[in-house]
Each structure stands twice: as structure tokens, then as C-alpha cells.
Design a protein around this nucleic acid. Sequence first.
DNA 1: CCGTAGACTTGTGGTA
DNA 2: CCGTCACAAGTCTACG
Length: 275
Amino acid sequence: MPELPEVETIRRGLAGPITGRTIKRIRIVDPRVVKAPGPAEFVRLVTGRRIVGLRRRGKYLCLDLEPAGHLLVHLKMSGRLLHRRLSKKAGARVPTGLGHLLLFLDDGFLLYYHDTRRFGGFHYRTDDPFPALALGPEPLDPDFSPARWRRILVGRQARIKSLLLDQQAVAGLGNIYAAEALFRAGIRPDRPAGSLSGAEAGRLYRSMRAVLKEALAAGGTSIQDYRQADGRSGLFQVSLRVYGRRGEACPCCGVPIKACREGSRTTYFCPGCQH
DNA sequence: CCGTAGACTTGTGGTA
DNA sequence: CCGTCACAAGTCTACG
């Protein structure tokens, strides 16, 4: 699911409401979403801690706790991180099937994780987990310059679509935004990364940042599972130009969009516009 | 270094 | 209509 715009939308939606709240109680509905440590130890460590910050790096979120500790969260394909007020009625029960990990907060709200596939989940860490993630630069950071992007491409034989998905090259793009950025830049997904001209690298730099910013402004792309922290869908799915549009006419030139296999991922591109 | 395949897991949609 | 298969926003590992 969630690529940079979706994860950042969730972070923005949650940061204000949960910062300063204490985790009063934890219910683990499916232990597979607690990746480390074991469930009992997780409950013991995290219960009673206060949330003092929520940060994002690439597609990861980190809940900073006090006394010092961290919850590293990755949503993988189908994870949702949601926040809602619990019913105030005495004896009201949390609906079953709401989520797979429930964190009851001291203001009567529930912060909960739901993941159909259980690929994603929570890691408890003593130290800040971000430095150890070995991720590439944040594409929307002010320090991420066109020159830095050109240095990432130079000499690379890997196909440009694979490199955009490589979180160690640049952090946060996934299958949707990699395809959309390449379409906007007019570059075929199977080009060797190092074969891009200076002008092409510049176009890709701008299109990658533009599509991420537009998707963020739209609250992300909801195709199946992704939801914002308050449960609303994102809106960017209507603005996708090639992803998921095999056989449809290209919005620029009218040629049918093609799909091909890149590794084990489907990639979409316009054979008329992308060279 | 690069590519592919498989693993994790469940739901959905198209096809036979 | 039902069963089966392919496929899905991500990452990690193994292997050639």
C-alpha cells in the first residue's frame, strides 16, 4: 500500500492527537503484527509509556516514547494505523474485528493497527531505529538536490524502475509512484539508470517530487486497503495516469497503456510517450 | 553488481 | 454457481 505520501498523511493526521498521550492498556488480537519482542514482553514494555513524538523515514513510522523507547511501524502492503474515540457508554465494548493491535490511550481514544495480510507491524526498540535503516535520501527533503540525484544514477546498470523501488537509493517510492514518476518524465521503466541523460535525470527528479507532493496534498492513493488515520480514503487514485490502467488510452497521446513484468512487479507505461 | 524467484498472508476479481 | 488461479501498495533472503 502505503508509499511515502500515504505514510506521511497518516503521520500528519496522528501527530497532533497522540502526542502527549499515555498508552494505558494494550490488546494484542493477532500476535503476528507484534514483530519484536514477544507479545507478553511487548505489553510489559510499552504499557504506561507516554507518546512524545511521531516521525517518518521512507515508509517507516516511529512512535517515540517516554521513558525512552521507540515503536517502529511498517505498514507493508495492507496495514492501517487508525485513531478513533471510544464509546463513552459504561460497559461499551470495543467492536471485534476492529484491528489486530489495540493501544488504549488516556484520553479515551484508541490507536489501533489493522493489517489484512499481517505483513506489517510493530517493533519495540530501545534506541532510535532510523539511523540503522540504511535508507537513501528523503526525496522531498530540501537537501535532496538534483546533483545528488544524478550521483545516485551514475554508473548504475540496474533498470531505472528497480532503482526507484530500491529504498537504499531513494526512500519512499513504491510501485505506484515509481510508475507515475517515469511516465511524467517520459522515460521507459527498463532503461538502465546510468543511461539517463542529464536532462532526463532532471526531468525524473522534478516528476518524482511533483507526483509525491500532489499525492500528499490529496491524502494519498486508496486502491484497496489504505486509509488515513481517521478512516477516510485518499483521493489521488483518480489522478493516476498509468498505474493500473493497462489498455486505457494514454492521457497525453492516446496510445494504449502497456503493462509488463519488472522482476515480480507489474509496471505500467505508455509506449508512445516514454522513451 | 544485477536479476529472478520465493516466502510471508488474505482477499478479491476474472475466467473456466 | 463454485472452484481455482492470478494478482495485490512491501521487504527480505537465497541463488545464478
